[in-house]
Simulated scan of single mutants.
Amino acid sequence: MSDGGVAGQAEAETRPGRFARLRRHWLLTSALALALLATATTVPLVLADSGDDAPCQDVPASTRALAKDPAAATRALDPGDDMARYPAVRKLIRQENPCGDGARALGALIEAATRADRPGAVHTVAQARAAYAVVAALDWAEVPDGMAPGLARMLADYVVDEARYLSSSDDAAGPAVTSEQAAPDREGWTRYGRFLAPGEAHADFEYTDPVLDASTDPDRLIEEVARNPEAFAVLYDAERAYFAHYLERLTSQGGDPDSRREDDPRDGSAATTWPDNDLEDIAGRIGALMRYRAAHTRDGQIPDLAAFDRAVRQHTRGAYRPAERRLTTRPPMGDIAGRPVSGPLRGDLADGRHQLLTVLDAWAESRNVPEARAAAMGQIIDNAYVRGLWLSV
């Protein structure tokens, strides 16, 4: 794997380091010791250990049982439309050092609460709100490694929602929207994406609640879990599956078949405006995954890159190729990420640019896309991938 940009990347630290608590405890211990020496006072010194020696948190049987009851799990993690239960959700799942297999148990609970019930099923509003609450509750958290695969599968189940996230927005009215709220307007446009499944609710990761200090940044959570090879593979699969899904629903001109906007002479075809934006988002996410891989290698969280890459390939499902004819179906998000593979993934898995552009070229050839339009799409995807690889998405 060669295109992850491990060498030469410069990236500023943007979150608390994993040893921040250790430094704080060391300073506290030193200050207390000096105070005791100065006063010649003898008192029992009891301080919580840090790092691997920190006391673990037990995950009770009642919490573990929720993973086997999806309806109850959703109720437990649904913050409500008014976010009144968000503090309880945060307390339940934000555990940085669960005992034993507790991290995997929490990951299983999150999956049960947020993912679609079965293939072909759409997300409910309660499930979408729960997904928002999970991402908000774990913002800036040091996610235990055992939770990472479950969180990745949750994010993959909301691939359309996380891919469109850019930043918090005052236009977002709540943690999730109904299918009616997400429906396209008379011009065929909606801020929640293209080709949405009828009846599906969507998590709105752009929503923020300053009173509860609740906000989300899916990119930060993706960066955190991407140090786990299984989680990395799940997310990489989901983005590549979404890319194939998206292409096979475009017209042979690379446009949105549902667009009814009039063309703007300044911006060109209205039908291609939002597809270009969406393809940028997808390519940028894949580039960012490779950037996270490089960053985790530099900071030692991926101690053996070759072993990590082998594990990623073992967990990767395969390649995704668009259909040779335009599809008009609108599957739910869970089915997008879980679509059947087209065959084994060939070539350098970390060369995301190659993986994207070979799929685009095959689609353009099979659909007789005009050469100029195919070239323009390729340039958009290439630029977005490079930005994702080297810069913040």
Rank of each mutant, 00 (worst) to 15 (best):
R325L: 09
A323F: 08
D304T: 12
Q314H: 08
R261Q: 15
R249G: 03
F308S: 07
Q253P: 05
Q301W: 06
G254H: 04
A283H: 10
R325E: 11
A238E: 01
V312Y: 02
N277D: 14
E239W: 14
R240N: 12
A319L: 03
R285M: 12
R240F: 09
H296V: 05
I286P: 04
D276H: 02
L327F: 04
G254P: 06
A241E: 01
A270H: 08
I282K: 12
V312G: 02
D278C: 11
E262N: 12
G334Q: 00
G268T: 05
T329F: 01
T272M: 14
Q314M: 05
L305R: 09
E324K: 15
Y292V: 10
N277K: 15
G334E: 00
I282P: 08
G268N: 07
N277L: 14
E262C: 09
Q314I: 06
G287H: 12
H245S: 04
E324A: 15
E262H: 09
T328A: 10
L247Y: 05
T328L: 10
G254Y: 04
R317N: 00
A295Q: 15
A306I: 05
R291E: 05
S252D: 15
E280M: 15
G255R: 05
E248F: 01
D309M: 05
D304S: 12
H296F: 05
A241P: 02
G255P: 02
H296M: 05
A271V: 05
G300C: 14
Q253N: 11
R285S: 12
L247G: 04
F243N: 09
E280Y: 15
T297Q: 11
Y242D: 04
R326T: 00
P257K: 12
E239F: 11
D276E: 03
R266M: 11
I282Q: 07
H296W: 11
E280W: 15
A323Y: 07
D309C: 07
P275H: 03
D335C: 00
L279S: 02
P332W: 00
G254S: 08
L247P: 05
Y320Q: 03
F243R: 10
E248A: 02
